[in-house]
Amino acid sequence: MRPRTVVRTLSELCVTTGTLLVLFVVYVLYWTGVRADSAMDEELGRLQERWSSGSVGAAAAPGEPEPAPEQQPGQQPEDAPPDPGAPPGRPGAPSAPAQPGAPTRTQPRAGTPGQAPPAGTDLRAGRAFAVMYVPRFGAGWAKPVLEGTGTELLKRGLGHYERTARPGAPGNFAVAGHRRTYGDPFKDLDELRAGDAVVINDGTTWFTYRVDGRPYRTRPDDTGVIDPVPAASGYRTPGRYLTLTTCEPEWGHSHRLIVWAHLDAASPVAQGRPGALSA
């Protein structure tokens, strides 16, 4: 009788532990994504509401994949010959980290429209202020960018490193996001290649950044990658750059994966979605 009770209790404990673990895996892999997706949709909705009601005249709705109006072919010179680096999507493309000539060349043109961030784009900690689009991640991929990189905040969207530049501004606009869990926003970050577009809408302006080189793997404490001119990026002159960071490997935290891009074009939201999103 006694050993029987012990064995039964032990097996019940084992079954309970197993069930707990399975439930936890379901929570991490599935439920965090469900929660994050709805939180991000909420942020997008709130942002759009603020843009449409506030001083920021944003006609373009975040998230909806409407066909882009083709009204300004002359405005989008990046459609013609992309940077000599590599056409998007070629896996074996030479991995020259960046063409030092390219960013400098584009600066004067890119700088003019979205120079100083208008009052509408005030960055309050924890609040969404922009929407990021990455065509490589899928046509419907649109995520809110929030101010700050706290753990709680990154469950509701991408996080902007507080001490880095604003979108489109001189310096380095650095953004962090989850590789896995919480909606997997940067799951495919390692698939970005030179020439891929990363588009930011801050309510007043569409900023089109172009990726340079291949994703760069570094140590978790390598804060130099979000410097105004990141040493490892291949950029040599001050410019308007973008840095994306996430964890590497996909399910680990031993390293970080970094992607750099330079500002290629900027156009007011009134002119509709940029060419990079309609392609």
Binding site: G150, Y161, A176, P220
Partner: peptide, 14 residues
Amino acid sequence: FNDVTVDNGMAVNQ
């Protein structure tokens, strides 16, 4: 899975 930034010191101030 939460370690996606390069400056974990800053991530604390949420």
